[in-house]
Write a protein that binds this DNA or RNA. Structure first.
Lengths: 248, 248
DNA sequence: GCCTATCTTATTGTCCGACAATCCGACAAG
DNA sequence: CTTGTCGGATTGTCGGACAATAAGATAGGC
């Protein structure tokens, strides 16, 4: 019959207040936040309380600091920050390799099509650069995996759609461990990826949305075959590789 | 030539340490975290430092507390938490209505197909329930919008793919304001949505993946027409409606 | 025996004050 | 115009304190 009366600790309200101003763009990106002491004065709370609020915003990616800097600045969540949080969430929800694959299958052809329609020359150059890096660096397995991710990222960027660019990252991140296994165990994997990238890049260059979409669908389907050939069960749970990022 | 020497403040290292244990599932979901004092003792830092670390994890959705509770428990990020963070990121990246729409167009048909293939009877019931709610509650505009979102959510859930379920939420959240305008300004919007949902539900019930995908694609395309008829420019920037959630 | 009221204790939220490290900006010197 | 010097401002961390209240234990009533 009655709603629970809402109570929120001060650190929460402070963080919400700042967050709202950022989202309303009253605090512009790149702008420096007032100092902790000043914020404490304005909100009429203790500096410790302000600091707790800042930590929340910091981990949301709304605040960040310049390299080696001290002050906090208003930023927007980077792709890495978004990707980290999302892939972490996927992992905790016990997403399996097949789930990630399915999502890629759904979303990547659309990204490729959009990229083909709207790619700029600069974006095309980045795409080709990523592709060339993959072709040339035969040596290291991990480099190769990173280059594949970079190619997809470049496509997301080329689509000119921030939603695509942001969605791309976490999916690829989760794919990387299993992709590494595929490259290790399936001899023809590299050349298949290489040729798929070539076709894709050509379609994007020619602004051929239909072709890009088709090739991408084929490319993704190839990954699935890769899993089978490499003997990776599709029901393997993905794991966020960056778990052990902590400095000991 | 030289890498910057990495330094990380204590609150960061504490938060990473706890996060790693959660992701490695050494701290199981639902388990209570040690008290702040105990954590401070173990990490050999001050309680204030521990609290800053906890705030970070809390806003990542890795820690939460039971309603009105005091202790913190290990949780996994809820759909709402993930959706909130993501839609916030999209908004700050100045995603436009057309960008969100394009992403929906790419991803929803795949979700519908997966849902049709793998839906359980329970999931189907939820889907029908959401559909029925939308049909019956003609009165309130905001209710209707929520019901549409609930229908999509039910589909994501029915797909049995946590990646889909998590991706669904933020996109829909960003769609809601503009969807409300469509419902207000386009008289036939309700009935078109209603019939699309009907076809979709039928396809899902019949486990007809092909049909579900096709109908979904049509449904999403319809939204675009809705924007045009309602006079909403496709280049409108989306805004995260929950900005003003703060309690004053 | 099970449910309820009461009491204790533990824990969180918040505050205050302090101090070292270091980043920042200005300023002087080569 | 770059490099050294310096004072002030700001952050990171600490210690201790206290009120409010959730959690657990205990006693009492049916």
């Amino acid at each position: 019959m009655f709603e629970p009366l809402g109570y929120a600790p001060a650190y929460w309200r402070v963080s919400e207040a700042i967050r709202a101003r950022i989202l309303r763009r009253e605090l512009a990106e790149g702008e420096a936040l007032p100092t902790e002491t000043e914020l404490a004065r304005q909100f009429e709370v203790n500096r410790s309380t302000v600091r707790e609020a800042l930590r929340k915003l910091e981990s949301n990616g709304l605040l960040g600091r310049r390299r080696g800097g001290k002050r906090l600045y208003v930023t927007r969540p980077t792709r890495e920050a978004v990707g980290g949080g999302l892939s972490q969430a996927f992992a905790l929800h016990r997403a399996r390799v097949v789930d990630v694959w399915e999502a890629l299958q759904a979303v990547q052809p659309g990204i490729a099509a959009a990229a083909a329609e709207r790619r700029s020359d600069a974006a095309l150059a980045l795409l080709d650069a990523a592709r060339r890096r993959f072709s040339e660096r035969k040596a290291d397995r991990d480099d190769a995996v990173r280059d594949v991710a970079a190619f997809f990222d470049a496509l997301g960027e080329a689509s000119g759609n921030p939603v695509f660019a942001l969605l791309n990252e976490p999916l690829l991140r989760l794919l990387q461990p299993s992709l590494a296994q595929i490259i290790d165990r399936v001899p023809q994997a590299r050349s298949r990826i290489e040729s798929a990238q070539k076709q894709l890049a050509a379609a994007v260059r020619a602004r051929d949305a239909e072709g890009a979409s088709t090739w991408m669908a084929r490319h993704i389907r190839d990954f699935r075959r890769g899993y089978e050939v490499a003997g990776i069960p599709l029901s393997t749970e993905v794991s966020d590789g960056l778990v052990a990022a902590g400095v000991s």
